[in-house]
């Protein structure tokens, strides 16, 4: 693989007495798709929120394009090109599609009053969605009126539009039907083919993302326990790993 974009070394995070992440070292190259798997509560979302600048790590280092960085805020991470697509989508129901796509980086007329240039935002949103093959009735409709898949697609499009270098997809197909998830996964596949963005995709359902991830990391109890290129592993191997985890967990409950 080519140039390294993102790397974490021994990142840890605790919330009071609760340790969410113990020791996480991951790395991501340009154009690479990394699948991050793990059970509920394994720390996937916490790791994502650290990479987006939403949480500060309690320990460890983060490198972006080879330089050690301290992510000060979400805006800071985004200015570097690290773009999150959250599980809760961070979409605002009362706003229309293009306002959501441009939220916090609105196109405005010059001057101190920060007047919104709705025409420009509407046109660019249309163009962007068309280019990405996202079909919605109109960019003027309120987000609340769209389906889960469409909402997710808009969240992804919003991040890509922002010239993301690293796209963080947190459970992109959660609570979605087959047709809807196919639409999202196709979108990710098209992005991968372009090779411009690196993607970390968090998922439960590893069978679904397996065929287009370049590499798989498994996060268990706040630690990376598995790191293999997809071609060197298989869905069966991953399944047995997770089954073993369940077995261990069950035994620890039965015999504490």
């Amino acid at each position: 693989m080519s140039k390294e974009v993102l790397r974490t070394e021994h990142v840890a995070k605790s919330f009071g007495a609760v340790t969410a992440l113990e020791d996480v070292s991951i790395h991501l190259s340009k154009g690479e798709v990394l699948g991050l798997l793990g059970d509920n509560g394994a720390g996937k979302s916490t790791l994502m929120k650290i990479l987006t600048g939403f949480h500060r790590p309690s320990g460890g280092k983060i490198y972006f394009e080879g330089i050690e960085i301290e992510l000060k805020s979400v805006s800071h991470a985004r200015s570097l090109g690290i773009e999150p697509v959250y599980q809760d989508l961070a979409l605002v129901n009362g706003l229309n599609v293009y306002h959501n796509m441009f939220l916090q980086r609105e196109i405005m007329y010059g001057g101190i009053f920060r007047i919104l240039n709705d025409g420009a935002m509407r046109e660019r949103a249309k163009k962007q969605l068309k280019e990405m093959g996202v079909h919605i009735p109109s960019v003027d409709v309120e987000i609340a009126k769209l389906s889960g898949g469409q909402r997710q697609a808009i969240a992804v499009a919003r991040s890509v539009y922002a010239n993301a270098k690293v796209l963080l997809l947190d459970e992109p197909t959660a609570a979605m039907g087959v047709k809807e998830s196919t639409m999202i996964l196709d979108l990710v596949r098209r992005l991968k083919e372009k090779g411009e963005v690196s993607i970390i995709i968090v998922a439960h359902n590893y069978a679904q993302i397996f065929d287009f991830c370049d590499r798989i990391n498994l996060l268990q109890n706040g630690k990376i326990t598995f790191d293999q290129r997809t071609k060197d592993t298989s869905v069966e191997q991953l399944t047995s790993l997770v089954v073993n985890e369940y077995r261990a967990a069950r035994e620890s409950i039965i015999r504490p």
């Binding site: 805006s75 961070a90 605002v92 939220l103 916090q104």
Partner: peptide, 9 residues
């Protein structure tokens, strides 16, 4: 969407 808006910055 208080959380969402703050996540976006």
């Amino acid at each position: 969407n208080l959380l969402g808006a703050s996540e976006v910055g």
